[in-house]
Design a protein around this nucleic acid. Structure first.
Length: 701
DNA sequence: TCATTTAACGTTTTT
DNA sequence: CGTTAAATGA
């Protein structure tokens, strides 16, 4: 197969440039991923570069997976086996691999665990408690954010402390310092540490640096506009004298500056790598003319941007359609109804549609409308599978057996299932454990020696220690799957979650899903890494469902029909940026641009005259971005509000005592008392609940 | 110590 | 509005 087939001249040139720095400025829908993939294939097939000598960084795990599969097809190789393109992945994933190999050179333990946002906030809370800093004026969440941005800018606790002026900052500095201390003791790295520890590693050990520089003959970075300071440093440290670095990006699509991403990295590429070749991809293969023009008009209002002119040979297509609605329920109904009728007509399938919104909270109303219209949907983002309580519990057990210094995990599971160890006993035990110098599992075995803990708690802790030690034995040779099974049976976790409610079945099913996931991994650290770094945007779609997601999560995707909902002042642009300044407003504009350019054939924008936000009804004016689009849009007259029942299960039939009902949340039961809208129901699992007819979603059976 | 009730609080986006 | 943390009572 000719690897240049189907490429335009600019793409083809980008594929064939053999060496030296290369900057590909790729507009939305210009075939950027295709170019990158073919370039890698070309390097392997024509320049005899080994796959293991190519460092290829993508923005999400999903993007990496897809690119790996496409490469497999292009090169007629199986992409399934481990080791095919071992260095293709996200920055975070690649950094984990490097740290597992060489991290000890900078004091990163071999068996480090990865703390996610929840873990970080939990540890911050512990630190604040210990430092006796009240959470009234300082919130763990904002401290966590401050630590994260400091790390992204490579500011150490000491440097932060030195520059702290206000008492607030001084307190944050204290917390940051102590947080780092405890995190290190726990043998853990947070997301941001993964990057900065690699920077330390490459800076401090010239042996390690030279080794990797020699290994990576080619470096390719996708979405370069979204790299932060730490990532930029990693790239600079890995590039060798050959300077075979190729970056792809689009400053118009930079939407992660709040996470430390700095799109000036892409603007400065030619300065950083002198003599770089620059190729612009400006032909758009995705959207119709009207969509492209409207999107270009929106982005044109930004001052801080490069110039480029996207064009297409596809005709103008349908105009962008703007719909004004009465409220958020009407908005959701319009979307659901349109989709359902288009599919009924046979014009589209459900998988052709995507609904994009600015905030996750907006998905709620849409979901309800979709349920009512029986439109199958799938949410990308939102609660990750690995963030569910029962999954996190089991992961905590796994992490603790793997890294017995991990106090966060221990604190989580010490009383799960409940074994009579409360907050007091936990605190006393941890205090004693940290003074003793033993790891947690060893300390549990010697818990008899302590004087402060009650006898009941002592025996519970000793028993837990016994179980953990048994799970810990032959960790090296046991598959993740077997370890999970072992933990489940040792702790009786399955019985613990089986409480007779319908949710219990779901939890049980989730554990089953976890077990089958785990089967794909040979070793525990591999599995734990996947769990930690798998993002919520990595959910794969099966093409049979409507996709709901945030505008951020939509980056890099495309759909025949796109709805962007809530195109209102205060939402898009978000109210948070009004006081923040023009830079933030420009980012909102880029976000709008990214959303619009996801559409291939049809783009619908909706806004509601009123909607409930934070529990109160608010009235947002239409977004300025719609005005900016110019005359590519068709405004549809506002639809007069029509009555919609507030709940799908609401019925005007009255319930009477003795009737059997089914509730979506409690299972089946019998009505024992009726008091106006209030029903008292005795459920089959033994509980008795007082429910409101209007909201309880009851079904007669 | 634990389960149930009550209060407070929050919504920007996420590797 | 919906979720989660604190407070209360058993």
């Amino acid at each position: 197969m000719d690897l240049l087939d189907g490429l335009n001249p600019a793409q083809s040139e980008a594929v064939q440039i053999k060496s030296g720095p290369l900057l590909i400025l790729a507009g939305a829908g210009s075939g950027k991923t295709k170019t990158l993939t073919n370039r890698i294939a070309y390097l392997i097939a024509n320049d005899s570069v080994m796959p293991s000598e190519i460092l290829a960084v993508t923005f999400t795990n999903k993007a990496a997976r897809e690119m790996r599969e496409r490469l497999g097809v292009l090169l007629k190789q199986s992409s399934a086996h481990r080791g095919f393109m071992p260095w293709m992945g996200t920055f975070h994933g690649i950094c984990v691999r490097m740290l597992r190999i060489d991290g000890e050179a900078v004091g990163v333990p071999k068996n480090f665990v990865i703390y996610d946002e929840d873990d970080r906030q939990g540890l911050v809370k512990q630190v604040m408690k210990r430092l006796a800093i009240s959470d009234n004026d300082i919130k763990a969440k904002s401290v966590s954010a401050a630590i994260s941005s400091s790390k992204n800018e490579m500011v150490s606790p000491e440097e932060y402390e030195a520059s702290a002026q206000a008492p607030y900052q001084k307190n944050v500095a204290k917390i940051y310092k102590k947080y780092e201390e405890l995190r290190k003791i726990a043998g853990a790295l947070d997301f941001d540490d993964l990057l900065i520890e690699v920077v330390h590693l490459l800076r401090e050990s010239s042996t390690v640096r030279t080794k990797w520089q020699k290994n990576f003959k080619h470096i390719l970075i996708d979405e370069y506009q979204d790299t932060n300071a730490a990532q930029y440093n990693i790239i600079k440290l890995l590039v060798n004298d050959q300077r075979n670095i190729c970056v792809v990006g689009d400053d118009w699509q930079s939407i992660y500056s709040w996470r430390g991403a700095d799109f000036t990295n892409i603007l400065n590429f030619e300065r950083d790598f002198k003599g770089a070749k620059v190729i612009k991809l400006e032909q758009n293969y995705r959207s119709t003319g009207n969509i492209l023009d409207a999107a270009s008009n929106v982005i044109a209002k930004n001052v801080n941007r490069t110039d480029k002119k996207l064009w297409t040979t596809v005709g103008p297509g349908a105009p962008v359609q703007v719909h004004e609605l009465y409220d958020e329920a009407e908005e959701a109904n319009l979307v659901a109804e349109r989709i359902s009728s288009h599919v009924a007509m046979g014009a589209r399938k459900f998988g052709d549609f995507a609904i994009l919104y600015r905030t996750n909270a907006q998905s709620y109303t849409l979901e309800r409308a979709f349920l009512r219209f029986r439109v199958p949907y799938q949410i990308v983002g939102g609660v990750r599978f690995y963030d569910r309580k029962e999954i996190k519990d089991i992961i905590a057990y796994l992490r603790l057996t793997y890294q017995p210094q991990d106090r966060m995990s221990f604190s989580r599971i010490v009383n799960i299932p409940t074994r009579g160890v409360g907050a007091m006993s936990l605190e006393k035990f941890l205090l004693w454990q940290s003074e003793s110098g033993m790891d947690i599992i060893t300390a549990l075995a010697s818990v008899e020696q302590t004087s402060t803990i009650t006898a009941k708690a002592k025996s519970a802790l000793a028993d837990l220690g016994e179980k953990l030690r048994s799970a810990q034995s032959d960790l090296e040779t046991t598959s993740p799957n077997e370890i999970i099974e072992k933990i489940l049976s040792l702790t009786g976790y399955r019985q613990y979650i089986a409480d007779g409610t319908p949710q219990a079945e779901e939890r049980e099913a989730n554990i089953g899903a976890l077990l089958s996931d785990a089967q794909n991994f040979a070793t525990l650290p591999d599995f734990l890494e996947e769990v930690a770094l798998m993002s919520s945007a990595d959910t794969s779609s099966d093409g049979q469902k409507v996709t709901l997601m945030t505008l951020h999560a939509a980056k890099g995707l495309e759909f025949p029909v796109v709805f962007i909902v809530g195109v209102e002042e205060g939402i898009l642009p978000h109210a948070m940026v009004y006081e923040a300044g023009t830079a933030e407003l420009e980012e909102e504009r880029r976000l709008m641009y990214v959303g619009m350019t996801r559409a291939r054939e049809e783009l619908h924008l909706t806004y509601a005259a009123s909607r409930i936000q934070f529990g109160v009804r608010s009235y947002n004016p239409v977004s300025r971005f719609i005005e900016d689009m110019g005359n590519q849009v068709a405004l549809s007259a506002p639809v007069a509000p029509h009555f919609t029942p507030s709940q799908e299960f609401y019925s005007d039939e009255l319930f009477t005592v003795g009737e059997h009902v089914r509730s979506s949340s409690f299972g089946t039961g019998e009505v024992v008392e009726v008091d106006g809208l209030a029903l008292t129901i005795k459920f089959d699992n033994g509980q008795t609940k007082k429910l409101n007819i209007e909201y309880a979603r009851l079904e007669k059976i």
